[in-house]
């Protein structure tokens, strides 16, 4: 069985996001970019499944500009067997990405597709669900535990839902999206970084995959959330009540 893992290149989790002055998007010039943390977890899970003997190959896919190759190299250094880079210079919304992943799945025929539950840049939380729907495969989102049964060809997945944990059993092939507590991703070690240098990364274009990239969604404006006003320290209960009454108008 092959496992396909989608890995997205995003502004590093620790970097403060800044909106471009013309409000067309987020500033990514000269900003540290890294692999989306949820994708890292997805890749780690795929690697563990392979190491446990349930899969033969882990393929990392990244869709975006040429620097996505760096993200793929990180994936290969973690242990993925090969990479696919679908070159795209405009940034795509989830539906387009899902269509690209669907076409790739039709070429590669994986038994499992792993994705992060969301990307930390746009926080959409849609791609995994859309891929499953387009392929007509079962889906298990927000996974915090994944157990494979090779003989029965099913995956048992614990997912984190509002009320607690829900356990699902899905037939393979399936789409799984990963939550934070699923695992702790490994580091890229020197021997693996060295090995990664000789692992192949295949370049493809949207045209190769025959995907229609026309989108029905148009982004009008990107703005920062309103700044929270700083609090004040009140000196007495009376002052607090006064403020709640006359300034906040809540009592």
């Amino acid at each position: 069985m092959k496992i396909l893992v989608a890995v997205k290149r995003v502004v590093d989790y620790a970097v403060k996001i800044r909106v471009k002055p013309d409000k067309t998007g987020v500033d990514t010039q000269n900003v540290k970019m890294s692999m989306n943390p949820f994708c890292e977890i997805a890749l780690e899970e795929a690697l563990r499944i392979k190491e446990a003997g349930f899969a033969k190959e882990v393929i990392a896919v990244s869709i975006g500009p040429s620097q996505c190759v760096d993200t793929l190299r990180t994936g290969l250094a973690m242990g993925a067997d090969r990479g696919i880079h679908v070159e795209a210079n405009s940034s795509f919304l989830p539906l387009t990405i899902a269509k690209i992943l669907k076409s790739l799945a039709e070429v590669e025929n994986p038994g499992l597709i792993f994705l992060g539950k969301q990307a930390i840049d746009d926080d959409c939380n849609q791609t995994g669900q859309m891929v499953a729907a387009l392929l007509g495969w079962p889906q298990a989102t927000f996974a915090s535990k994944v157990v494979l049964d090779k003989d029965k060809n099913v995956a048992t997945v614990d997912r984190e839902v509002d009320g607690g944990l829900e356990t699902l059993s899905v037939d393979l092939p399936a789409v799984i999206t990963t939550d934070l507590r699923l695992n702790q991703p490994r580091y890229a070690t020197l021997p693996n970084i060295m090995k990664a240098k000789s692992k192949p990364i295949k370049k493809m274009t949207v045209q190769d995959l025959k995907v229609d990239i026309k989108s029905d969604i148009e982004i009008l404006e990107v703005t920062e959330p309103p700044k929270r006003k700083s609090g004040v320290i009140v000196s007495s209960v009376d002052e607090l009540i006064d403020k709640l009454k006359n300034e906040a108008h809540v009592v």
Partner: peptide, 26 residues
């Protein structure tokens, strides 16, 4: 990377990791 791989081959370093993001570096 090139420096470390060389050091690794020479045996100066027996194992090692490179931070892939700021979180790992921290």
């Amino acid at each position: 990377e090139a420096f470390l791989l060389k050091a690794f081959e020479k045996g100066l370093v027996s194992d090692g990791v490179i931070a892939q993001d700021i979180n790992q570096a921290s």
